[in-house]
Design a protein around this nucleic acid. Structure first.
Lengths: 352, 352
DNA sequence: ACTGCGAGTGTTAGCGCTAACGTAACCTGT
DNA sequence: ACAGGTTACGTTAGCGCTAACACTCGCAGT
């Protein structure tokens, strides 16, 4: 049985609850199913009188249209698949907000799938989502399994790969260059005269964007003849705590270090808190920087330097691309939108 | 046109891409559509030879089944609607994790809808979700519009209201008593001898659970003949920063205050950071407590007292109820599961 | 030989809705 | 008066899939 919208019968003992259909509304209001359908979709010509009658009947019965049948008949689905690695790290919720805000009122609805940074999970989630024939797909990153890539190519709907532009998109792309983000940060750090640099990050075999930032960062340092003095990676647990612990460990290991670059703001914040407690002169003796530009750092005793990842804007622009496709039926030319993140120097990078 | 899975024709110029159906796979593999359907669903008897043949053909073509048609035909939908107020405040992502983990491997898939704490939005999101005829609904809170309540009652599927048990559930409920949580915290605070208590929270007209905590809290204080000395509410912005600012303002306003109760851990953390910087003796001169038990507080210089909201477990138990319904067709008796949050005293509540 | 049975496959009839077209009634202008 | 249009419906034929049943084998039991 459908988990269907059911009908309260006059006599509850007489008949099992049935699932309501257009037919029930049509009988209750004395018009054809087609007219009911037109009223409920607000499409086509229906006289005001009939419209009110039908609406009243539908409301009275508590009818909720069956979009499964509707979509099958009309070959139109008001869903946009959004596939992201995680919901718990502050960056994707904001992307989601950008998407939702932009889609709001368009009739399209985002549906979220989570991959936990696993390409295999991404593949299965994508398969699952495509089986609902969404009007578009927004997914994080440019790195997918071959099977996933094949599905995307042959899906026949707009695909927007977000967050990252360092690579060849399948269709559209909106994001920032993480290589460049790493590079820019390296330059800023060198410009301030820091020399002995440590890196702290997530175990990033699976987080391609963090890896790209790291690569861009080290390469740029390399050009100045500088190598990272120390590095450490964590996984799991409270990011703030890990940042604190890893920072303490690293600074004890390497007394010479004069800058710490963190792969995200949360561990950076943890590190910052540790250093302030330890009485280290920030940014004099030690500079610090994170990545993402999360709201949280505004509330820290000192503002951590960071780089905005343009999260909201990415979601917004991705959704706009999907919407644009809805208007004109033909496939528009693939767009590749590269946003430029700005460094926020905060109180931990600028040496006076 | 469906945003459908399309076919690459041998000659890309010859024919527009068509959307693939079971028929295409059936023709490619030389068996009936029904047999293909059986193979792809792994149901019914199909010989190993045929099975392989069909799977190969499906993979070759890149066929992705159309669940819209499948669900319509079978009256079964593998979706569970999850309706929550927000994704950006750390509490619901963890509930989601509990739900996802539990549903994993069951064939059921959670689909999330966000209400932004607005009942009207909740109503429309619910309508939208029900129109896809999910196998169950999990939604936050017991407070809904009349229309939403009516939809829930007549949906004919298991409904689980989560987070809150202070009230009459529509069907099942899993959560904690927020009144009781407030009450317990009041007791703990009084037990430690604090007397001049300030409250800091979100503007909570819309957050019913925060309000219930506040009510439970003030009532219990009232029994001891104590009234809140000062209170302040915020909305929007960085919670950490707001906590810092509001705390500073309140302490400057009321020098007598000896305890601050925050409606969530993040503003509490902001307040804590401020107090530490200001050199206030915590918890000697001033005690503090938050609510939720978020991971983040592990990384603070001093552990904020808090109360675990059992977020993961709530998600888990809610999903289990839905799964139980899937097994036996009849409606099981409504369950009401009340979890008991535990106070974590941390370093900011226990006076020595 | 015949029935009986289960494994493997095909056939038929929808699921609940909407696109596309049909039709009846009513305008409007000349 | 009548063609030609417009408004307000109804009718028909699917959308792509699966439940339910029908059928065809081959083989065991008698």
């Amino acid at each position: 049985m459908f988990g269907g919208i059911t009908m309260k019968t006059e006599n509850p003992m007489a008949e099992a609850r049935r699932t309501l259909t257009l037919r029930d509304v049509s009988e209750a209001s004395g018009v054809s199913e087609m007219t009911v359908s037109r009223v409920l979709r607000g499409q086509g010509d229906v006289s005001a009188r009939t419209r009110e009658k039908v609406k009243a009947a539908a409301k009275e019965l508590g009818y909720v249209p069956n979009r499964i049948a509707g979509s099958l008949a009309s070959s139109r689905v008001n869903l946009v698949a959004v596939i992201i690695p995680s919901m718990s790290n502050m960056v994707f919720p904001e992307v989601m907000t950008g998407i939702s805000d932009t889609l709001e009122g368009s009739g399209l609805q985002p549906v979220v799938g989570i991959t936990n940074y696993k390409m295999e999970k991404e593949e299965s989630v994508l398969y699952e989502m495509l089986s609902w024939r969404p009007s578009g797909v927004i997914l994080a990153g440019l790195d997918h399994t071959d099977a996933a890539r094949a599905m995307l190519r042959s899906a026949g709907i707009p695909i927007v790969e977000i967050m990252d532009v360092d690579g060849e998109p399948t269709d559209h792309a909106v994001g920032i260059s993480h290589r460049r983000a790493g590079l820019e940060m390296a330059r800023a750090i060198l410009r301030e005269g820091y020399q002995k640099i440590g890196f702290l990050g997530t175990k990033m075999m699976l987080d391609f964007r963090a890896r790209k930032r790291f690569e861009g960062f080290t390469e740029e340092l390399g050009k100045a003849g500088i190598e990272i003095v120390d590095q450490e990676f964590y996984s799991g647990g409270s990011a703030l705590l890990k940042g604190r612990e890893m920072t303490e460990a690293m600074l004890k290991r390497n007394e010479e270090i004069d800058f710490l670059y963190y792969s995200n703001d949360l561990i950076g914040a943890g590190g910052l808190l540790y250093c302030l407690e330890a009485g280290i002169d920030i940014p004099g003796t030690l500079g610090m920087a994170g990545f993402n530009g999360v709201e949280l750092i505004d509330g820290l005793p000192r503002k951590l330097a960071t780089m905005d990842a343009c999260r909201y804007e990415i979601g917004q622009k991705a959704a706009e691309i999907i919407l644009r496709h809805g208007e004109n039926d033909e496939d528009a030319a693939p767009e590749k939108i590269e946003l430029t993140p700005k460094i926020a120097f905060g109180d931990t990078l600028h040496r006076r």
